[in-house]
Design a binder for these strands. Structure first.
Lengths: 347, 347
DNA sequence: AACGATGTCGGGAACGATTGCGTAAAAAAA
DNA sequence: TTTTTTTACGCAATCGTTCCCGACATCGTT
């Protein structure tokens, strides 16, 4: 089955003109008489002519599409970010090709190649938890493919980066747990490779330090797949609970870590926040309905998507190579609810 | 900025061959000597040659991309469906352009035109809650654009349709509420225009009827935007609670209706399931963490996406016009949890 | 020796649109 | 009237790839 579109030739033939004249008439060139223009325009409207974007892409060497590589669409942070990306991209005439790595390095590499082979004009990428080698990204970037890093940024590539203030988000979350009377605060961390993991870890440590609390290695557990696999979080939690001095609070630094931590506690009959208080990163718009209502660090995902796309398109459409790169850092917000023991006074 | 790719011409020039020979060598034509083939293949690998998909699209009059129109990416049902769509599409060399209507008819129409103008080879569509005029779809379909309807299907177009058994899902959910001892069961329904609304309504009615319970108009409230706007659900719930005989259970027939109904009850201090039992459609993987844990009708979203995409690609690649259309109906499953008062015996 | 068969390859048109250049006719200037 | 300028359009190349033809060896057959 196929779907035959009207071309400029059809118009030319019907009107007894050449394709060049029609093309110029449609683009309102000064070389074409008003009379001919009107004739062409009217006929084009009649038969509902639409320029073929593929022919244009071939000619102009640009596809007017941008690629996205994220770990998972069905993750509220990323789906909100996609909304932001899409809103800007569409308004500027670009379309968006979304691919997901599902936290697999291998899939990320093949997605990157797929996008390059589909000749996208640029890419927005948030790397997978498994990614520690960035050659697949830097190679294409060095060949001139515009790339904007987003959320999980990488070193070794000089380009625009859009992140949230992970240090402050983690600091505030930890401080909040301390303010609600907790002293043995564990940290469910994401993959060690990720920039966000390091930054959040630093914020967590600094908050402990500023409050005179010791940092303990056994209170930190990394999850190589960001909690996407339940057993990961299960293992991490079991490790944490094995400590002689059990933690009295948990700071989870990814959406799935947070929810799977809740799920674990529910399964084990651990009372939140009585036995253990919980605060975690999450962009779910449902955290108020969870029991107990979930204290979260929420990121401006939509805004991040918008900003990243603006920067990318600016880069794509720049005449000369861009050398002045921006490092946008947006704020994250802490929403204190029941799970962190909001109302518990310091004992 | 742009990114110059290697072309077949570069290979031809480097090897002192013509482009036709190179092209044929790459496609392993019998007309080319084994020696030349090896030479071309090796050099192509060396310089990492990738055929330009845009040039191919122009030549073959197909873009190897499919369009999706859904209401919202950040809705777990649709994001799961997208996963299914993507998995099949990518494995068959297609890429996917996702657009969202956000339940707006106007946006749906412009998305449809956008996709057509980007010359997608086919479309998968689930209409918005506002859509009651299908001309934007049928016009393109009649011009030969392959389209598969999915979840929210439409009449007036003979094509493949992939749905779930909405009648049975609603029947089972209602029956479950009856089994748990409820007699005054209200129905938070989606937009009246939608196929799924009608089918679920029918299942709801039939279950009441089969159990000798009366169907009452005042126990039914429609939401024109599927609960996407909280005030919609708020109004609907307020209406339901105004009845002389307040409903003792609610069957919500969309994800956002369900969660916003929970949110409403929480805000008003209505105890679930003691004051009112709740069951609703939802594909969230978090419903077990909500308090009380949420009884849901869950749809096989991923599977639906896969099936729809298989059918679409089959249609796209068919040599002759397809006239034999399938109507795939997948089962939905009821998960009974606390919110429907699972353990309450019939009084 | 003459001819067809076969094996290898190149030329060039085509896909749809844009655009530099050339040019005929009309208008303006000389 | 002749020359120059302007107006309004067509021709053809281009983008990267495929594919229909045609060309030219080489070989075997009669």
């Amino acid at each position: 089955m196929k779907f035959e579109a009207v071309t400029i030739k059809d118009i030319a033939k019907a009107l007894g003109l050449s394709t060049s004249t029609v093309s110029r008439a449609l683009r309102d060139s000064y070389e074409i008489s008003e009379e001919t223009k009107q004739q062409v325009l009217q006929y084009a409207r009649e038969i509902n002519y639409r320029p073929n974007p593929i022919a244009l892409s071939l000619k102009e060497k640009r596809s007017r599409s941008i690629g996205i590589i994220i770990s998972e669409i069905a993750n509220s942070f990323f789906s909100q970010a996609i909304n932001g990306i899409e809103s800007v991209a569409n308004s500027k005439g670009y379309n968006v090709i979304i691919t997901q790595s599902l936290e697999s390095y291998e899939r990320e590499v093949s997605n990157m190649q797929f996008l390059a082979s589909r000749s996208v004009d640029g890419c927005i990428i948030s790397v997978s938890t498994e990614t520690s080698d960035y050659a697949h990204i830097t190679d294409l970037f060095n060949k001139g493919l515009p790339i904007v890093c987003f959320d999980r940024v990488i070193e070794g590539i000089e380009t625009h980066k859009v992140t949230v203030d992970n240090f402050k988000g983690a600091y505030d979350a930890t401080q909040h747990l301390i303010d609600t009377g907790h002293k043995r605060i564990a940290h469910l961390a994401n993959s060690e490779f990720l920039s966000i993991t390091k930054e959040r870890m630093a914020g967590y440590k600094k908050a402990l330090e500023d409050n005179g609390l010791p940092f303990k290695e056994q209170y930190v557990q990394y999850s190589q797949h960001g909690g996407m696999i339940y057993s990961e979080v299960e293992d991490a939690m079991n490790h944490l609970l094995k400590a002689k001095q059990k933690p009295d609070a948990i700071f989870a630094s990814a959406d799935k870590l947070t929810t799977n931590c809740m799920r674990f506690c529910k399964a084990k009959g651990i009372k939140i926040p009585k036995d253990i208080a919980v605060i975690g990163y999450s962009n779910l718009d449902l955290t108020d309905l969870i029991s107990p209502s979930l204290s979260v660090v929420r990121q401006p995902a939509f805004e991040m998507g918008k900003v990243a796309t603006d920067l990318l398109i600016q880069m794509i459409e720049s005449k000369r190579p861009v050398t002045d790169f921006e490092n946008i850092v947006l704020p994250a917000e802490v929403y204190a609810r029941e799970s962190s023991g909001k109302k518990i006074p310091v004992q």
